[in-house]
């Protein structure tokens, strides 16, 4: 199977709107990158604790996929979800405050890095039991379908999740009931320290999906335009009621699995090799080669991003902690006593 790449093609004519859109894509990816670089720094400084899983190297996937969504669509993500939350439009401030554990965080500091939630953006977490969110995504999509809503539900997962029973249960039922679920596998080649070839008898994930009658494609996950195009095709298909869709986006995680990973399972040289296909560099080069961006515009993006990141840190720093008396709130729904 060939992996679809778009950024090799030459662009002749590009409208100003299109040009602006490209800049938006680059802005999103750079925002995610710089935001997470900051998060790693803050982790070293013990401002952020618990598990922190960085998305660095994989930014093109969340960025590309979100372009095809409407505000009514739903997103369900894993614990490696800062990028997805940002690309979905969740404010950088409340994500940072959440990672600090402050009450102003998007989950009042109760969730942390792995459990970002935002109702307004229909962002259903931040799920840290691998694969537990696939049935959830099929259920959310089923509800849309039963209510005749034209929405899709996007479910991001790692290739490690494919080994869990719930992967197979969810694809089967999604296909059987034709739910509008878009499964996006972010195949970064490693499930923690176990490479796909050591945990899957058939490393071809699209074949697995296809065996459940789910339409499946493999794409270059480091090519933001290829991702965007695939997501649009997928959403058109899903909104026409034909059932679930499966995108396998091939990518690579540049950083350790989490902050507790000595990376014994891969060579430094391998990581460096993959960094040559950094999605931000690939896209920046493409834009430059096609005269779609100027250096000054890139600098402006960086400056804007730096301000957003700094603002989020200031916001988190200056936010209060939740009162300990509130510990037992939200175990059950609070009802007014009127």
């Amino acid at each position: 199977m060939s992996t679809k790449t778009v950024t090799k093609e030459k662009k002749d004519k590009v409208s100003p709107e299109q040009r602006e859109h490209y800049h938006h894509l680059l802005h999103q990816m750079i925002l995610i990158r710089r935001y997470e670089e900051k998060a790693a720094e803050l982790y070293q400084a013990s401002k952020i604790r618990g598990f922190l899983h960085l998305y660095i190297g994989e930014e093109a996937i969340a960025t590309g996929v979100m372009q095809a969504l409407t505000p009514e669509d739903s997103v369900v993500a894993t614990y490696r979800e800062h990028g997805h939350a940002l690309a979905r439009g969740v404010s950088a401030d409340v994500i940072m405050a959440e990672m600090y554990g402050k009450v102003t965080g998007c989950a009042r500091g109760r969730g942390g890095s792995m459990h970002l939630f935002d109702k307004e953006h229909r962002f259903f977490g931040g799920n840290a039991i691998v694969c537990s969110h696939l049935p959830l995504a099929v259920g959310i999509a089923l509800a849309d379908k039963m209510q005749n809503k034209p929405n899709v539900t996007v479910c991001f997962l790692g290739e490690g999740a494919v080994a869990e029973g719930e992967f197979h249960e969810s694809l089967n039922l999604g296909a059987l009931w034709q739910t509008p679920t878009l499964f996006v596998v972010e195949n970064n080649l490693y499930c923690m320290g176990t490479a796909l070839r050591y945990h899957s008898s058939n490393p071809n994930l699209t074949e697995k999906a296809a065996s459940y009658n789910v339409k499946a494609v493999q794409i270059d996950g480091n090519d933001v335009l290829a991702v965007e195009q695939a997501a649009h095709e997928a959403c058109d298909y899903l909104r026409s009621g034909k059932g679930p869709y499966f995108i396998e986006a091939i990518t690579y995680r540049f950083r350790p699995h989490s902050m507790f990973d000595a990376e014994l399972y891969r060579e430094k040289a391998e990581v460096e090799e993959h960094k040559k296909r950094d999605p931000i560099i690939l896209f920046t080069n493409y834009l430059k080669e096609n005269n779609l961006i100027e250096d000054g515009e890139i600098q402006a993006i960086e400056a804007d991003v730096a301000a957003v990141v700094q603002h989020s840190v200031d916001f988190a720093e200056n936010s209060p902690w939740e009162e300990v008396e509130d510990l037992t709130r939200f175990v059950y729904t609070e009802r007014s006593l009127s």
Partner: peptide, 16 residues
Amino acid sequence: ASEVPMPYSKHMEEAA
């Protein structure tokens, strides 16, 4: 333990 799902923030986790 307090009968709550474990919170993330340190002071709340300790209190739990």
